[in-house]
Computed example of a mutant assay.
Amino acid sequence: MNTPSRHLAITLQPPDKQLLQNLCGPLDENLRHIETHFNVAVARRGGQLRISGNAELSALAAEFLQNLYILASQPLSLEDLQQNLIEMNHRTQESTGQAIEPTEIEPKRSKSLHGHTPNQAAYLKNIQTHDVTFGIGPADTGKMYLAISAAVDTLARDEVKRIILVRPSAEKFCCLSPWELSQKITPSLRPLYDVLHDLIGFEKTTKLCKKQQIEVSPLKYLQGRTLNHAFIVMDEAQNTTPQEMKMFLTRIGVGTKAVITGDINRINLPAGEKSGLVEARQVLTGVSGLAFTDFSADDVVCQPVVMRIVKAYKKHGAATP
């Protein structure tokens, strides 16, 4: 039987503006993380908090906030918040035999999530510090792989509730039957699954997809949705139209990060159709909260033998009249 929803109001005591500020974080960022962890909504008015959601989880969130408030003599970092959430989860499990279900992915250590080139390092920094990040450049520069790595790491830390990976390449199949659609779409989305399998394995990928914590789909199926507390990655963005790009960007909701990757030299659109990625670069440069990272051939990372093969073909092509 489902636990009923509940609206719970609490007043943090004793009244202290500094404690309240330390607890809530800049722009109530800590409250947003707590919302994500407990799957509740928290509204604040001064020292009064209104918590809405599942009754049991609302009560746990209220208890957590009241206990954390007393400890907030200093500003609370995300690491402090995460550690306290883990400790509460352990206490809950010991007393009730149940715990708030954690994500089944171990967070990556900071050293394992890094770039091999200066542009890759800057890209990861942009993803960390911006709501929307564009990665533009040639293939094999790590644009998609690093974006999905960051998404997996963010989900593992309970900073988001789900990962959504999309590509526009399957759009032309949208009028087929469901069975025909699955047969056409699956190969076009396979590169996204390949990265997930490499990062967390086949079994965890399958399990998280079944639980809808990871969603892999054509871009078309984001239309009409508002995506809160998610990490969204769009690959092959050079093959969006301006309308599709605008639709994607306006799906971003509360607590959501988005990364858009593409190569403007590999546009596969009908003649005369403008790329949404090209237009986005023109329209959005300088907009607050967005970042652009440009990759070049110097950022290509692959096996040495592959590099030698590419160079050999390039040399052959230059010598052939």
Results as ranks from 00 to 15, higher is better:
6 R>V: 08
9 A>Q: 05
11 T>Y: 11
18 Q>P: 00
18 Q>I: 09
25 G>V: 09
26 P>R: 06
27 L>M: 04
28 D>R: 00
29 E>D: 10
30 N>K: 00
33 H>E: 04
36 T>W: 00
37 H>N: 00
44 R>A: 09
48 Q>I: 12
51 I>Y: 01
51 I>F: 03
53 G>N: 00
54 N>V: 02
55 A>Y: 06
56 E>F: 14
58 S>K: 05
60 L>M: 06
63 E>M: 09
67 N>A: 14
68 L>F: 13
73 S>D: 08
76 L>N: 01
77 S>Q: 07
79 E>K: 12
85 L>T: 03
86 I>V: 10
87 E>V: 06
87 E>A: 12
89 N>S: 07
91 R>S: 14
92 T>P: 06
93 Q>S: 13
98 Q>E: 03
99 A>K: 13
101 E>I: 11
102 P>Q: 06
102 P>N: 02
103 T>M: 11
104 E>W: 02
104 E>R: 11
107 P>R: 12
111 K>F: 15
113 L>A: 14
113 L>T: 15
114 H>E: 13
115 G>H: 09
117 T>C: 14
117 T>Q: 10
118 P>A: 11
119 N>T: 15
119 N>M: 09
119 N>R: 12
120 Q>Y: 15
123 Y>D: 12
123 Y>H: 12
131 D>Q: 15
132 V>P: 04
133 T>M: 07
133 T>H: 04
134 F>W: 10
139 A>W: 07
142 G>K: 06
143 K>F: 05
143 K>H: 10
144 M>W: 00
145 Y>T: 15
147 A>S: 10
148 I>P: 06
149 S>W: 09
150 A>N: 04
151 A>S: 02
151 A>Q: 01
153 D>K: 01
155 L>Y: 00
156 A>E: 03
160 V>W: 03
162 R>A: 05
162 R>P: 07
163 I>F: 14
168 P>R: 05
170 A>S: 08
171 E>F: 08
171 E>C: 02
172 K>W: 12
172 K>T: 14
174 C>A: 09
177 S>Q: 08
181 L>P: 01
184 K>G: 03
185 I>W: 00
186 T>Q: 08
191 P>G: 03
191 P>C: 02
192 L>C: 01
195 V>P: 04
195 V>C: 05
196 L>W: 06
201 G>H: 15
202 F>S: 11
203 E>D: 14
206 T>M: 07
207 K>H: 08
210 K>G: 04
211 K>I: 02
211 K>V: 01
212 Q>N: 07
215 E>N: 00
219 L>A: 03
221 Y>H: 03
222 L>R: 00
229 H>P: 00
232 I>H: 01
233 V>Q: 01
234 M>P: 03
234 M>S: 11
235 D>P: 07
236 E>S: 01
236 E>M: 03
238 Q>W: 02
243 Q>M: 12
247 M>W: 10
250 T>F: 06
251 R>Y: 15
253 G>Y: 11
259 V>M: 05
263 D>K: 08
266 R>P: 05
267 I>T: 10
269 L>K: 08
269 L>E: 01
270 P>E: 04
276 G>E: 02
276 G>P: 12
277 L>R: 01
280 A>T: 14
281 R>P: 00
287 V>H: 10
288 S>R: 11
289 G>H: 13
289 G>D: 08
290 L>R: 10
293 T>G: 06
298 D>P: 07
298 D>G: 11
298 D>A: 13
302 C>L: 08
303 Q>C: 09
305 V>A: 12
313 Y>I: 13
314 K>T: 12
319 A>W: 09
